[in-house]
């Protein structure tokens, strides 16, 4: 397919990339391109300038913070690299598990964690998962760097806190503490397809965090369910009871894949499955 004419630049430093994004109206960062190239084909996006991040090696690293309490994942880390990372395996294995179920081998070889979150497609895997894991996002602009918590990062469908002239450089995820477990559940289109409804949960000594995806423009915290789980009873009946009424609090869309009511039902089922599995993993 022929794309609309576009200019292309491949900066070699983050500073150059930010300058390009700042100086050119209609400039857009190009990560793995597994969404952006497609939306350009459909003319759903028509950037004038593509700023390819491919040469920014510092965005491809996975490391730990100085105190070891945070896993720091560069925005250009691919799903394949996440799935194979020994650091991720040790510190937050659910990230590798979920990365290895996104789309297919070819897409995972190019698609990045930064692209997945910056697209902010409600059906994507990482937005609800990273919200449940209480991740934070480092955004670089001409004025410097700021750190945005997950609760403020996802602003709307295809919209995040990354503004014009800014670049997401890093996703920071707290390392898993002893007695903590994470899981993601939901209904996908095909084995590794996009979600119709998803639920991500983390269960630990500080309680549970439960986040539902695909039911709104951004991930939704199931706060009432979290409060009902505060007693620490993760038996099947207790978790089911805690999820009751969750669907009624949501305003999900109806589309060709599922009605709003079906999504409400799926949200409760998915949340229960995610919490039960996370609680099981929390045992060790």
């Amino acid at each position: 397919m022929l794309l609309r004419e576009v200019e292309y630049a491949r900066p070699s430093t983050i500073e150059e990339a930010v300058a390009l994004l700042t100086e050119h109206d209609g400039a857009r960062a190009l990560a793995g391109g597994q969404t952006l190239v497609n939306v350009m084909k459909a003319r759903a996006a028509s950037p004038d300038v593509l700023v390819d991040l491919a040469d920014l090696d510092e965005l491809r690293t996975i490391s730990f913070s100085a105190d070891g309490g945070t896993l720091e994942i560069g925005a250009m880390v691919t799903c394949t690299a996440l799935a194979a990372s020994s650091e991720v395996e040790v510190a937050r294995p659910v990230l590798a598990e979920v990365a290895s179920t996104i789309a297919d081998v070819q897409v995972r070889n190019r698609g990045t964690i930064g692209g997945n979150v910056c697209v902010s497609d409600p059906t994507n895997h990482f937005p609800p998962l990273l919200s449940a894991l209480d991740a934070s996002f480092t955004v670089r602009g001409a004025a410097g760097e700021r750190v945005v918590p997950a609760g403020e990062f996802f602003v709307g469908v295809y919209m995040t806190a990354v503004g014009e002239g800014e670049l997401l450089t890093k996703v920071s995820v707290p390392t898993r503490k002893p007695g903590t477990g994470d899981a993601m559940a939901g209904l996908t289109l095909g084995a590794h397809g996009t979600y119709v409804v998803s639920a991500a949960a983390t269960v630990g000594p500080e309680g549970a965090r439960v986040v539902i995806g695909c039911v709104s423009s951004t991930p939704v915290r199931a706060t009432a369910m979290e409060e009902r789980l505060a007693g620490g009873d993760y038996s099947q009946s207790a978790v089911k009871a805690a999820a009751e009424g969750l669907g009624a609090t949501l305003e999900p869309p109806s589309d060709v894949h599922a009605s709003a009511d079906y999504r409400r039902a799926l949200a409760e089922v998915s949340a229960v499955r995610a919490v039960l599995q996370a609680a099981e993993r929390a045992k060790g």
Binding site: R10, L30, N38, A54, R110
Partner: peptide
């Protein structure tokens, strides 16, 4: 399909399979 779904355009780039309809030629520099 030209939409990144079918995989008929799969080639190896630096040894790993990718869909060549979802990559710009300039990205292959």
């Amino acid at each position: 399909c030209d939409t990144g779904n079918c995989g008929a355009c799969t080639v190896h780039v630096d040894g790993v399979p990718v869909k060549s309809c979802m990559m710009l030629a300039v990205q292959a520099q």
